[in-house]
Write a protein that binds this DNA or RNA. Structure first.
Lengths: 232, 232
DNA sequence: TTATTAATTGTCGTTTTGACAATTAATAAT
DNA sequence: ATTATTAATTGTCAAAACGACAATTAATAA
């Protein structure tokens, strides 16, 4: 029987930075950690990779368990593997960022876990290197969203261009001209205009749009350039 | 004493896709695997992550050991963690891609390891999921190189624009107009023109350029658009 | 001296960008 | 009913970038 003799073995975990958008600001979903050490401190949603699952599987499982949501947008970020990042025992963690519709979540909230949304800029102190993970995730989200149409994942099925606009500004931490923005976003051909209007935000009301799912699937990899003068 | 009871532990490895450029084609550096299983089969350069190093450290160590090179351009790609990807024992591997100056390597070749350059399109069958890693690395290289000035890492300190041009075409698997290319690449301000010419390739000769290292360091994150009509 | 070859610079119409103005569709105030 | 107000949407336009293609240049070989 062949074996890799004497090589050290480690724990492998996943941690998810879950982004949501409340209509005004970017938020992240945090949970109170349920095990020692640092029990009851705020942390990212995470868990160990089980023997019969890949890290991707594990991240999906953790998200399902803690939010009730399936099939969410999930992207592998990077591995966090400093030898002593976990004080108890060496644990390498694969960082993921997830984009979810914040309203969908609230409907399915599972109270087994003490979870809470925080404004990205007003988050509490996090355990271990989780704060760095959030910083990295925010950076990667910005980068990716500037080039690929992924922010839709944080909006309801029906959304307005002003909503999208605020979300883009929020993610990129910059002002974008509304007039140029709507022209650009509609010219992508990814949006289908609906007859209905959203009148909650203004007198005139803004038309609802929905994603052209076929084109979105085909163009999820396509390059856009929705943020002018982008600095990454 | 706190501990994470009964969680499974795994081996963690790194594997490096080492890219080089011989002046005409993109190549990758492969080694004959030195341990069972699959001993003597071609594989990527890799090794297990030691107890006192991060995966990044491990990748650098492996590269140093097998090529003699230090400080090479190295970028974390993704984790490969299917439960049975290694038939002997569960091993998760962090994939990296590296860009090196192929000539620098040849000078320092370490014969302890049977290593060989292969044309990217004529590589042998590789062990485990290493072929998929190469495919992923190629894709990521293309993506990254379209937006960031990283291909310089594969050229000598002094290089000509025609050399750069061929490299860009090779990486992106497309034809790029020489005239538009040289205008674009010089307009980045990243290149410093030298007095000397390379006369090996043509009668007229092509001027050598070198990188403006200050600007390169500042602009390594900057967006370029060197490949027209890019499809990723 | 001339032909040849590859590098380099130039031209120009089209498209994209982004700053900014004008119009429109609704509601609230008079 | 009319007017003011507000936010959404459509328009305008000059500057920049893009990309197809031509012309020039610097060398060597014939």
């Amino acid at each position: 029987m062949i074996e890799y003799s004497r090589q050290p073995h480690y724990l492998v975990a996943v941690d998810c930075i879950v982004f949501g958008f409340d209509g005004e600001h970017l938020k992240i979903l945090l949970v109170k950690r349920g095990l020692e050490p640092e029990i009851n401190k705020w942390s990212l949603m995470g868990g160990f990779v089980g023997p019969d699952e890949s890290p991707d599987d594990a991240a999906n499982r953790v998200l399902k368990k803690m939010t009730g949501l399936e099939g969410v947008y999930l992207e592998q970020m990077q591995i966090y593997g400093e030898p002593h990042r976990d004080p108890i025992e060496r644990t390498l963690s694969v960082g993921y960022f997830a984009l979810i519709d914040i309203h969908k979540y609230e409907a399915q909230l599972n109270d087994d876990y003490e979870a809470e949304w925080f404004l990205i800029n007003e988050r509490p102190k996090l355990i271990f290197d989780h704060n760095q993970m959030v910083i990295d995730a925010r950076k990667k989200l910005r980068y990716k969203a500037a080039l690929h149409p992924i922010l839709f994942e944080m909006l309801p099925k029906k959304f307005t261009i002003p909503q999208l606009h605020i979300l883009f500004e929020e993610v990129n931490d910059t002002k974008i001209d509304t007039r140029n923005f709507s022209r650009k976003i509609t010219s992508t051909g990814l949006l289908i205009k609906l007859a209905e209007k959203d009148r909650t935000g203004s007198k005139k009301g803004a038309f609802y749009f929905k994603l052209d799912k076929k084109k979105y699937a085909a163009n999820a990899q396509a390059f856009l350039n929705l943020v002018p003068n982008l600095k990454v």
